[in-house]
Amino acid sequence: MTSSDPALWLGTGTCALGPYRSDLVETYWRWEQEPSLLVGYGRQGPESLEARTEGMAHQMRGENIRFTVYDLAGGSPAPVGVSTLLPDHGVRTAEFVIMLAREARGRGLGSEATRLTLDYAFHVTNLRMVWLKVLAPNAAGINAYAKAGFRKAGTLRRAGYWLGQVCDEVIMDALASEFGGPSAVKDLIAP
């Protein structure tokens, strides 16, 4: 590994998680300004790079758990997104948020990154439950979350906006006690 190679903490053959990096603030900011991402988050307006840079300094000091998502398919790791756990330590739960660059969508990287983040949440951070909110019209997101281990838990009626229209938000959760299948964390510590 050279000094320019990113640190990769958990991975599969095609996707990995590494540290959230201040040197990627402009890259993160570009992804966040893309209109389809703004619609998916239900956010109404863009943010300046200056404001994002200032926010990054705060995020780097915070208690939230953030990862850079890497695409490994091209030979060398390429950053393509961010996954975040917003923990509530008092009850051992966290909200999950993910952002993928447009070019990374539709290839299964979202499901893989989500599953790796859940693996970390349950086997390193020892959370008992992780939850998320997704706008109901975002069928691709709902399917990716379900593939990664989330289940629908409820609906917040008329709580969001999608393309200028009021819509429901779907609440999904994943429990540590139900998280099965391969574990990148367990593979790292297996004798």
Score class of each variant (00 low, 15 high):
Gln44Tyr: 15
Gln44Lys: 14
Gln44His: 14
Gly45Thr: 15
Gly45Asn: 09
Glu47Ile: 11
Glu47Cys: 08
Glu47Leu: 09
Ser48Met: 10
Leu49Ile: 15
Glu50Ile: 11
Ala51Arg: 13
Ala51Gly: 10
Thr53Lys: 10
Glu54Asn: 14
Glu54Val: 13
Glu54Ile: 08
Glu54Gln: 14
Gly55Glu: 02
Gly55Trp: 12
Gly55Pro: 04
Gly55Gln: 03
Ala57His: 05
Ala57Arg: 02
Gln59Thr: 13
Gln59Arg: 15
Met60Cys: 11
Gly62Phe: 04
Gly62Lys: 05
Asn64Gln: 09
Asn64Pro: 01
Ile65Trp: 00
Arg66Asn: 06
Phe67Met: 00
Phe67Gln: 00
Thr68Phe: 00
Thr68Ser: 02
Thr68Asn: 03
Val69His: 08
Val69Met: 02
Tyr70Val: 03
Tyr70Ala: 02
Leu72Glu: 04
Leu72Asp: 03
Ala73Asn: 08
Ala73Gly: 06
Ala73Ser: 08
Gly74Gln: 09
Gly74Thr: 07
Gly75Ala: 10
Gly75Ser: 01
Ala78Asp: 06
Ala78Trp: 02
Pro79Trp: 03
Pro79Arg: 01
Pro79Lys: 07
Ser83Asn: 05
Ser83Gly: 06
Thr84Leu: 11
Thr84Trp: 01
Thr84Ala: 12
Leu85Asn: 10
Leu85Val: 08
Pro87Tyr: 08
His89Ala: 14
Gly90Tyr: 04
Gly90Asp: 09
Arg92Leu: 07
Arg92Asp: 11
Arg92Lys: 15
Thr93Gly: 08
Ala94His: 00
Ala94Tyr: 01
Ala94Phe: 00
Glu95Gly: 08
Glu95Met: 03
Phe96Pro: 00
Val97Ser: 14
Ile98Asp: 00
Met99Val: 08
Met99Tyr: 05
Leu100Arg: 01
Leu100Phe: 11
Ala101Thr: 07
Ala101Cys: 13
Ala101Arg: 12
Arg102Ser: 15
Ala104His: 06
Arg105Pro: 15
Arg107Leu: 13
Arg107Lys: 14
Arg107Asp: 12
Gly108Tyr: 07
Leu109Gly: 07
Leu109Phe: 05
Gly110Thr: 01
Gly110Leu: 03
Ser111Tyr: 03
Ala113Gln: 07
Thr114Tyr: 01
Thr114Cys: 11
Arg115Val: 07
Leu116Asn: 07
Leu116Gln: 11
Thr117Met: 08
Thr117Lys: 03
Thr117Leu: 00
Tyr120Lys: 11
Tyr120Cys: 07
Ala121Pro: 02
Phe122Tyr: 12
His123Asp: 13
Thr125Met: 11
Arg128Gly: 15
Arg128Ile: 15
Arg128Ala: 13
Met129Pro: 06
Val130Cys: 03
Leu132Ser: 09
Lys133Glu: 10
Lys133Cys: 13
Lys133Pro: 06
Val134Leu: 05
Ala136Gly: 09
Pro137Ser: 10
Pro137Tyr: 14
Pro137Thr: 12
